[in-house]
Amino acid sequence: MPDATVVTRSRRTVGHTRRAVAFALSRRDGVAVFGVVTAAYLLAYLVVVGHLGPGDGTWGVTVVSDPLSRALRPRGAFRFEPVAGLAAGPVRLLVAPLTLAVGGVLAALVGVNLSLSSLAVRQPTACGLSPSTGVLAAVPGLLSGAACCGPTVLLVLGVQASGLLLSAFSVLVPVSTLSLLVSLVLVGRYVSPGGATARDSFDSS
C-alpha cells in the first residue's frame, strides 16, 4: 500500500504543476511563448520526420484511398503512414494524423515548459533555472523523428548504428515525453500561481 504521505505529496505536486501551467497560460506573455515555441517545435519535428519540406512550385492535394486504415499503419516506432500530400508552391506537407498527434503532444509539452520557464526566471527565487531545461528534454523527441529509413540522422552525426543505438531510437519518444513531464514538474516548483512568490511558498504549503 503506498505511503499516504507520498500520495498526498504527489497529489499536491501535480495540483501545483497544474495551477502553475494554468497561471502561465492565463498571461499574455505566457501564451505568446507557448504558442511560438509549440509551433516552432512542431514545424521542426515535421521537417525532421521528412513530412515538411521544400515544394516544386506546384499546388494540389493528394489523398490515399482508405485513409482511415492507412492512418493507423505504422512505419516505425511512433511513426505512421501519411494519408495526404499537400503541395503548396514552395512548401510540401505530408499529413500523417498520428505522427502529427505525437509531434503535437511533444511540441505542446516543450511549449508549456518554456512558457513556465520564462515566468520562473523572472521570479526572484528562481536562481539557477534556465529556459533550456525544457528544451533539452525535448531533444530526444526531435531526434526520434529521424529514425526512419535506417536512422539517417546518424549519417549526419557520422555515427555507425549499433543494435543498442537502434533500440534507443525506438524509445526516444516515450523517453522525451517522460523527460518533459519531469521537467514540467521541476520548473513548476519555481512558479507561484499567485505570481508574487515562488518556490518557498510551494515548499511551505
Binding site: R75, C149, G163, L166
Partner: peptide
C-alpha cells in the same frame, strides 16, 4: 539487425 522501420514500415 533492425534497420529502424518495422516489418512493412517501408
Amino acid at each position: 539487425v533492425s534497420g529502424g522501420p518495422g516489418k512493412d514500415g517501408i
